[in-house]
């Protein structure tokens, strides 16, 4: 474990807490894409299957359980909560997630470390996480005025990925033989997708104006 990875995990944890706080405090999920949240739950469930058969550390196990439970909780809020579900804009959140999930599964079946069920599902989760934010970014472009907490949520998610890039550079420099091409390439693409958002987020922050992504 290194400081970059720990900071990345904490930023990821914070992003989910910010999202839950926003939904719970405002009793609204306006601007939040249910599709992205469902994709994240799928990412966590397919990636953390090793919870069933291997133990790495208390930290590792706790964080995996937190990510699965918290994303399930966000989905419950958006789908079931009597007040919050009224504020979900399904007419705007129309990204065809199958166009993301199917290519990721096909790629996972062809490009993987090992052709076993858990390894293919793990690889699928790596590819899927790279594109899971797209429905959320598309929704932000459509809903003109993005509320601050939702903007912060996406910014923290991007920050967690950027910290993971630093973590990989650090591990390459300090751990001879450490190679994770699938994770590195997929994670770099994922972080690149945030660059556009980072630009508009920082611009709106410096001009002290509402965040709005050009459609």
């Amino acid at each position: 474990m290194n400081i970059f990875r720990f900071a990345g995990d904490m930023t990821h944890l914070l992003s989910i807490i910010v999202l839950l706080l926003k939904i719970n405090a405002t009793k609204s999920c306006a601007g939040v894409s249910l599709k992205t949240q469902e994709l994240y739950l799928l990412v966590f469930v397919t990636r953390y299957l090793d919870l069933l058969y291997s133990y790495i550390s208390l930290y590792n196990t706790f964080m995996k359980l937190f990510f699965i439970c918290s994303s399930g909780c966000v989905i419950w809020y958006i789908r079931e909560h009597k007040t919050v579900s009224q504020t979900y804009d399904s007419a705007q959140d129309t990204f065809r997630v199958l166009f993301l999930a199917c290519p990721c599964m096909i790629l996972a079946l062809t490009v993987n470390h090992d052709f076993t069920v858990t390894e293919v599902l793990w690889t699928f989760s790596i590819y899927l996480e790279a594109v899971a934010i797209l429905p959320q970014l598309v929704l932000l472009q459509r809903t003109k005025n993005v509320d601050t907490l939702t903007g912060n949520y996406v910014f923290l998610l991007g920050g967690y990925r950027a910290l993971y890039l630093l973590n990989w550079i650090y591990r390459i420099l300090t751990e001879p033989g450490y190679r994770q091409w699938i994770v590195w390439i997929s994670g770099t693409i994922q972080t690149a997708i945030y660059c556009d958002f980072f630009y508009y987020y920082i611009k709106s922050w410096r001009n002290n104006e509402r965040l709005s992504l050009p459609s």
Binding site: M1, R5, D9, H12, D50, S54, I56, S57, N60, M63, K64, F67, H113, W122, Y164, N167, E175, G177, Y178, R179, Q180, V183
Partner: peptide, 10 residues
């Protein structure tokens, strides 16, 4: 790389 380092990231 050992199985440990492969899957120790979240």
């Amino acid at each position: 790389s050992s199985i440990f380092s492969r899957k120790d990231e979240l």
